[in-house]
């Protein structure tokens, strides 16, 4: 089995590499490890695995994905931060462990403990309703919600989850009051929404896409500042007058602080190329996910601004620890 051969190879190589690596050593000199702090098979896991596979040729070494679950992503991320900063151990993550969860729970790391390498993709969340709902575009949607404060329920991915926070960020700016019902993920939200147990679907695009296509549901709002080509009916945040309140669900690669700059540059280049590749694009775009392939510097800016915005938001809705 190639998985175990990979592991065995990694084990042998790690065990024999006791001497400190010489500065002139070629990087990377052995297989890399990317820690994904979710169980295998979820959205983040799939995206990072695909990205890693596509980055292998540029790096000349295999990339092994290690799933380390727990603590809402904090445990896996902690392991990244504590790893040896030689560039061979990295983290593949989404927003929450970096910008959201640390506000709610004591995290064993600070934003300055890691270096941002590259942002791979990002996807806004959408808000959809059944076709009978009395609104046909974003503005009518918000109007209707404002007229009925506290009446409508929307499904999200758990209190303090990405969907919940991105929704509240917008709703609080617009003065809308709805009742969030926490579910375990897009799949459960979808199921409960389709069964009529909640009024509004709030979540990622991919699961609800087939149900929009067949006309039984309509998407009225998207949490990005520009409109989505695939969903013309959904109002963008600019159209609603609140362009800077968007939060997308993104995936990116980070590493422990202290990796030498030349190595970071090599990694950044490899992962950006991987994200720009056709195969990655072909996977992401039909799902409504935007390929970013951003530089480490841009990624860092996004993380820092989102971290600050989330801190403020959570204080205002009373979620901070």
């Amino acid at each position: 089995m190639s998985h175990s051969i990979r592991t065995a190879l990694l084990v042998v190589l790690l065990a024999t590499t006791c001497a400190p690596a010489a500065a002139q050593e070629k990087f990377p000199s052995r297989p890399l490890e990317v820690i994904v702090p979710t169980p295998p098979g979820g959205g983040t896991d799939i995206a990072i695995r695909l990205l890693a596979e596509l980055a292998e040729p540029a790096l000349g070494q295999k990339i092994v994905i290690v799933n380390k679950t727990g603590g809402g992503g904090l445990i896996g991320m902690a392991q990244v931060v504590q790893a040896k900063p030689d560039g061979h151990t990295l983290g593949g993550l989404w927003n929450a462990p970096l910008t959201m969860t640390p506000h709610m729970q004591p995290a064993p790391y600070k934003p300055t403990d890691y270096v941002a390498i590259s942002l791979a993709d990002s996807a806004p969340t959408v808000f959809c309703v059944k076709k009978e709902f009395p609104a046909n575009d974003g503005k009518e949607f918000i109007e209707h919600l404002k007229k009925n404060p506290g009446k409508f329920t929307y499904g999200n991915d758990g209190v303090g989850g990405t969907i919940h926070l991105s929704a509240e960020r917008i709703f609080s700016k617009l003065g809308v009051k709805t009742r969030p019902v926490p579910f375990g993920g897009a799949g459960e939200t979808l199921k409960n929404y389709l069964g009529g147990h909640v009024d509004i679907y709030g979540g990622s695009i991919t699961p609800i896409l087939p149900y929009i296509k067949d006309g039984s549901n309509k998407c009225l709002m998207v949490t990005s500042s520009e409109k989505l080509v695939s969903m013309p009916q959904a109002a963008s945040l600019s159209e609603l007058g609140v362009p800077d309140t968007g939060t997308a669900l993104w995936h990116g690669i980070v590493g422990p602080k202290g990796i030498p700059a030349e190595r970071v540059a090599i990694l950044e280049k490899a992962f950006r190329e991987a994200a720009r590749s056709d195969k990655f694009r072909q996977y992401m775009e039909p799902r409504g996910i935007k390929v970013e392939a951003a530089s480490g510097a841009d990624f860092r800016k996004l993380i820092d601004s989102e971290y600050a915005a989330m801190g403020d938001l959570m204080k205002s809705i009373g979620l901070t620890k």
């Binding site: 089995m1 998985h3 175990s4 592991t7 065995a8 084990v11 065990a15």
Partner: peptide, 15 residues
Amino acid sequence: FTAALGVALPHGVLP
């Protein structure tokens, strides 16, 4: 467990 099933067991002091 390590060779056939790919489970990672700790090495500790031995190589």
